[in-house]
Nucleic acid binder design. Structure first.
Lengths: 232, 232
DNA sequence: ATCAGGACTTGATCAATATCAAGGACGTGA
DNA sequence: TCACGTCCTTGATATTGATCAAGTCCTGAT
């Protein structure tokens, strides 16, 4: 790994609170790889050979069954994926592909498992990351089972707006069909749901969104911390 | 805690591979509690004061939103719940209630967090448990997003039969309305789905189930390891 | 054994979502 | 600027699942 890369990797949230010497020893067995957009990084069912950490770009985590496919999440810089499979030395449950060109840190699974056993701080960082990921999926499962697609869209808009500082203005960060799959609906349903939000003063043109009546949208979405609050 | 209880608790899977002395020190701050059926053990949104481990009985893990409610899972002896909330010192994302009278080991959250920091073996056991739980939810999310309710039922029947040794004979271990909620459908839909399985030689009377044409049911259900295999 | 209440089923209907088929908008590269 | 392809939207229709309303069955308590 090049020296400037090394510098950058040390800053990753996954290594927060881990001794610098240990991080460096981990990074010695790791490497940074660039991938073009749309290539599959990880395939569902394959043995977990690497832990992946996104340095640059967007990665779509998805799963397939028969001729169907659904997006589990879309991750960005700083996020790692498939910790659980690596830790347990099992196969990946999900596939991953870049939505954009990406730069990815790849840590050999063996090194991660050793690291978990040897360095208590790294073990803690991994466990915290996994606990957060776990809670994320639980929230998503609740979102799916307890809400209609219109409600899911409304809540997604509010959450996304809050990420950007509640300005009422935001951009959808990927294709609408990816968003539809992420929200668990057909692309056509997303289109219609967007139209259904017009009475709530939601103005969506292309990827640009304006929320012109936050109160109205909130009364439809009814967000709750135990599903929607990322800090919860 | 009584001595015979202590004896029993040491055997729990959560303590596997953890030094006996450390297990005992953990158990000193813990206690075993009996609860009657149907009482709420844990309420969504409350701070995570305890890690729960089921000693006896069945516990339904569920979540609510507006006037809706859905079952996330049904757990039995040996299972623990809400590790992630305890580890992160956050609120519970789910509620829990006994479906039967239960005996439950309650470990104070503070002690668990200390244990995680102090004892590497316990930390590993917790992490493994959490990783398995994580993969369980991911599978369930895929199950929900990628399958119809009939497919979910068919796959549940096959999985449940395999748990019992693939004899083709099994009993539904709880009320059908709980199963319906667990599978993500209204109770009426479960009834109709059961009727829809008659051509596949599935015979359900009350809680007794007979699968008389495994092949036919398999061709409908199409189970895959990355959703249905508990060992995967 | 009987009765009451809960659990389950069945039928009718409605609402939500998926699918199929075109058509339109928009950005990109020639 | 034009042409192409991709993405998105819109309309029509089918399917799936939810809801409402009885009715039946089963069970557990008296």
């Amino acid at each position: 790994m090049r020296d400037e890369d090394l510098q950058e990797m040390r800053q990753l949230p996954l290594f927060e609170g881990v001794g610098a010497a240990y991080v460096d020893s981990l990074l010695r067995s790791a490497f940074v790889q660039r991938f073009p957009a749309h290539v599959e990084l990880v395939h569902e069912g394959d043995p977990a050979d690497f832990l992946y950490v996104i340095v640059q770009g967007q990665v779509e985590i998805y799963a397939s069954y028969r001729d169907r496919e659904t997006t589990i999440s879309v991750l960005g810089p700083g996020n790692s994926f498939i910790i659980a499979a690596v830790l347990l030395d099992r196969v990946y449950l999900k596939s991953a592909r870049g939505l954009t060109p990406t730069r990815i840190l790849m840590l050999p699974a063996e090194a991660v498992r050793e690291g978990f056993a040897e360095d208590a701080h790294f073990a803690r960082a991994l466990a915290v990351d996994m606990a957060l990921a776990y809670r994320g999926v639980v929230k998503e499962l609740k979102n799916q089972k307890l809400r209609s697609s219109l409600e899911r869209l409304a809540n997604w808009l509010i959450a996304e707006d809050e990420k950007g500082g509640s300005t009422g203005k935001l951009d959808i960060p990927y294709d609408k069909k990816v968003l539809a799959s992420r929200l668990g609906m057909a692309p056509e349903v997303l289109s219609r749901s967007i139209a259904a939000l017009i009475p709530y003063k939601v103005d969506i043109r292309g990827r640009h969104v304006q929320l012109n009546d936050r109160e109205a949208l909130l009364s439809l979405a009814r967000p709750v911390p135990t599903i929607d609050d990322p800090a919860c």
